[in-house]
Computed example of a mutant assay.
Amino acid sequence: MESGEEARLIGLARGGDFTAFGRLVDAHQGAVRAFLRRVTGNYADADDLAQEAFARAWEVLHRFDGSSALRTFICGIAFQYWRRARRSQNRREIRETAYADLSDTETNETPERASQRLALRKAMEELPEDQRAALALCLGQEFTHGEAADILGLPLGTVKSHVTRGRARLQAALGVGVER
């Protein structure tokens, strides 16, 4: 979506236009859900959190000042919902078995590829929350370090450190040589 069109839709949504907000949701839900799926490791939880984040974004759209991209603003809300859910409810993490994970794969995925994907998911789950979120944003969703810092509410240098250290931990866990 072009920035001019997005700005127009934001203005309409701020005025109470649900259709305009729906178009903004359509434009950004893929990025928000993909980010949340990477940090939660669970599609159902990610979709629930995304829905909550978009509902909250509707309520606080007047606070969006345009200093960042709208998807950054919404991902920041989503990240806060994810953090709150983990802290306040003391949820037990749902770890799918290899069979359940394999049923989640594409039908043409090779067993070797499925095994690699499962190993990556397990390694991601073992990272500290902030590192996992930084990697999911910067490597998985191609957000810039600056955008990730805005979303996570962390200093830019901290995000860069999380990405570097998280990548190194993933490479070690997966037995991949560190590339420079």
Results as ranks from 00 to 15, higher is better:
142 E>M: 12
122 K>V: 07
94 I>K: 06
124 M>W: 05
172 A>Y: 08
135 L>W: 02
20 A>Y: 03
31 A>D: 14
131 Q>P: 01
57 A>V: 03
152 L>F: 03
17 D>G: 02
82 W>Y: 15
79 F>T: 05
159 V>H: 06
173 A>K: 02
116 Q>L: 09
44 A>D: 15
107 T>F: 14
42 N>A: 10
83 R>M: 10
34 A>Y: 09
159 V>Q: 02
117 R>Y: 09
104 D>F: 07
124 M>N: 07
153 G>T: 05
84 R>A: 13
119 A>W: 01
168 A>M: 11
172 A>R: 10
64 F>T: 05
155 P>E: 13
85 A>R: 12
168 A>Y: 02
41 G>Y: 03
38 R>N: 10
121 R>G: 09
32 V>C: 07
63 R>K: 15
36 L>V: 03
19 T>P: 00
126 E>C: 02
68 S>R: 15
101 D>A: 03
142 E>V: 09
153 G>H: 12
90 N>H: 14
42 N>D: 15
40 T>F: 01
98 A>D: 15
138 C>M: 04
160 K>F: 00
114 A>S: 11
165 R>N: 07
129 E>K: 06
104 D>S: 12
99 Y>E: 15
33 R>N: 10
61 L>D: 08
152 L>A: 02
47 D>G: 03
174 L>R: 02
61 L>H: 08
175 G>N: 05
6 E>N: 08
168 A>V: 02
180 R>K: 10
117 R>H: 14
126 E>N: 11
161 S>V: 07
20 A>F: 06
102 L>G: 07
7 A>N: 06
174 L>D: 12
35 F>E: 07
36 L>N: 05
163 V>L: 08
101 D>G: 04
92 R>K: 10
41 G>P: 05
139 L>R: 15
151 I>Y: 00
8 R>Y: 12
30 G>S: 06
142 E>G: 05
89 Q>L: 14
79 F>C: 04
125 E>G: 10
87 R>S: 14
30 G>L: 09
124 M>I: 07
7 A>T: 13
167 R>Q: 04
41 G>I: 01
112 E>L: 11
38 R>M: 13
91 R>Q: 14
80 Q>T: 11
70 L>K: 06
160 K>S: 11
157 G>F: 12
39 V>I: 14
161 S>D: 07
36 L>M: 05
170 L>C: 01
29 Q>Y: 06
171 Q>S: 12
175 G>K: 01
113 R>D: 15
166 G>C: 06
96 E>G: 01
72 T>F: 03
141 Q>S: 11
69 A>V: 00
145 H>T: 13
9 L>A: 02
45 D>F: 00
8 R>I: 02
126 E>I: 01
36 L>E: 08
98 A>S: 13
27 A>L: 01
130 D>N: 12
149 A>D: 01
12 L>T: 00
